[in-house]
Structures are given as C-alpha cells and as structure tokens.
Design a protein around this nucleic acid. Structure first.
Lengths: 134, 134
DNA sequence: TTGTACGGGACAAAAAAGGTCTTATTGGAG
DNA sequence: CTCCAATAAGACCTTTTTTGTCCCGTACAA
C-alpha cells in the first residue's frame, strides 16, 4: 500500500523513546511499550531484531532493559525502517535484475528508482537526535 | 511494505499499453492482458475502476474494448497509482488529524509529510506520454 | 536460589492481496 | 430481432502478510 506497517511505526516509537531518555539509561520494555502505546510483546520482537543488528543493546535479569546501541545522532530513520521492513523498493521491478523482463515496462523503472532514491535520502537525513523531543 | 501492490503495477502496465497504441484505437482486454503479462480477469476489475474515474473509456459488444479517457500527456503516474491504491500516505499518522494523538511521535510527522510530498511530486511529473515507448 | 527481565520459537487470528466465476448488460452485425 | 462479442458488476475464494500472543528457556543480580 506504499505505507509503512505498524511494525515500522512501533519500531520508530520505541527508538524515539530510548533517544529521549538520559544517555546510557536502561529502560524497561514495559515502560517503553506503555508510554508509546505499543503492544509490549510485539515491541519485544522488534527490539530483539534491533539487538541483533546493534541498533539497541539489551540487558537481561533484574535491572535489565534496553538502551540505544549507538549515539542517537548516529542512528537514522532509514536504518530503523529498513531493519524492520527490509530494503525500500517501491516496485518489485527494481528489486533485482531479471525479475521484470518486459521491455515495455522498463520505461517506468527509472521513475521508481528516483522515488526510491528520494525516500532514502530523506529518511537517512533524519536521526534519532532530531526526533527526540528534548 | 512501502511498495506498490501488483494491482498498482498491473494498472500501470495496462495504461502504458493503451498509451503506446494509436490514438483512439480501441484495444481488447485480452490483447492488453496477454501483451503485458497480466491476469485478464484481474485487469478487467482495474479497468472497470478506471472507466468510472474517466481514466479509460470502455466500449461493449463486438468491436469493443478500451482506450485512454484523455490524451496520454494528461494522465500522470500519480493519478493511476492513487486511483487503484488510494492516496499516498507513507504513515497512518499523517492520514488525518486526530489519528495520532501522541505528542512524542509528532516529531516524525514532518518527515513523513516530506516523503509524501516528494513521492507525489515525482509521480505527478511523469505522464503516460513519457512512458509510452513509441 | 529466587525473582526479574529479555531471547526464541511456535502458534493463531485478522486483514489484505490476488484472483476466479457467474450472471447481467450492452451493442453490433447478419 | 436474434445471436454473438465484449465489458459490468458482484459474489466468492485462496493465499500471503500482518499483527499479534504464549510458553519456555536463559541470563543476571540481589
């Protein structure tokens, strides 16, 4: 639908929350979920993914939780979105060579390429630092 | 997934086909579907929608078929996409006021607005005339 | 050693995507 | 005026994706 999923939206909310906390503070998932109005178990899955990719760092046991894996100014919206949604490819055609073999449709490829480029530029220019309302 | 659906892709293919035909030629749905590698019955649905919106003009009975409802240079990619996919809104938040009431997330709204604006600008600048390989 | 909190995997309901089928309805040609 | 060609409309269906939930395991701190 040319729209990010709830998962993507929740991911951003969670990361914005972390970015708006004091640096190095470890936040409880339950707190993040409650404050950002996100289903906790769903957010848990998202943050597991982020933990693996290094976007967040997790701590288990009492006093555990999550904090950003890097300084907020080094985490872009693009990275967050692409980590949960996969690469931004506005049309299947431009995903990889050979998928779309029809000559005629190739005239639209450059358009989708341009859309892709523009989106990536915008999203990569915005970091969590910009988004944290502090 | 931040990607147009097959429906949207098929819609574009069908319209590009019509645009690459001689002006005022009425094309058979079966021909369009075959040439553009699109399921015929699915394309039928799409073109019904286009007929209502005026993007194409349909003719029934023997010798019937479809042709563009307007000159190719007056039909933009944006119009085609939005007719089948609905308005381009990269995040639910920016669809309408009040849907997203959380203060914190509002910092990302302007970003999505910008993405939306950029996409619409690109897609509206491309017409079927540009896409018809003639 | 116990309680807290994340990790991981299986599972499942709901929604959307993708497509088919059947029955009109329309219009042209014989 | 009747038959055939072609779209219109709507019901229906299947598959995939989305949007979660649940349970058990594991790590860690007090």
């Amino acid at each position: 639908m040319l729209q990010i999923s709830r998962k993507g939206d929740y991911a951003i909310r969670g990361m914005v929350y972390l970015a708006s906390q004091p640096v190095d503070k470890v936040s409880l998932l339950s707190d993040i979920a409650a404050k950002m109005e996100v289903p906790q178990t769903f957010l848990a899955k998202i943050f597991q993914q982020f933990n693996k990719s290094g976007l967040v760092k997790s701590y288990r046991g009492a006093g555990g939780g999550f904090k950003l894996g890097r300084p907020a100014e080094n985490i872009s919206l693009l990275e967050i979105v692409e980590t949960v949604e996969g690469p931004i490819v506005p049309n299947r055609c431009i995903m990889a060579a050979g998928i779309c073999s029809r000559d005629i449709s190739c005239t639209v490829h450059p358009v989708w390429k341009e859309v892709q480029k523009s989106m990536r530029e915008i999203l990569s220019s915005v970091t969590l630092k910009h988004l944290a309302g502090r």
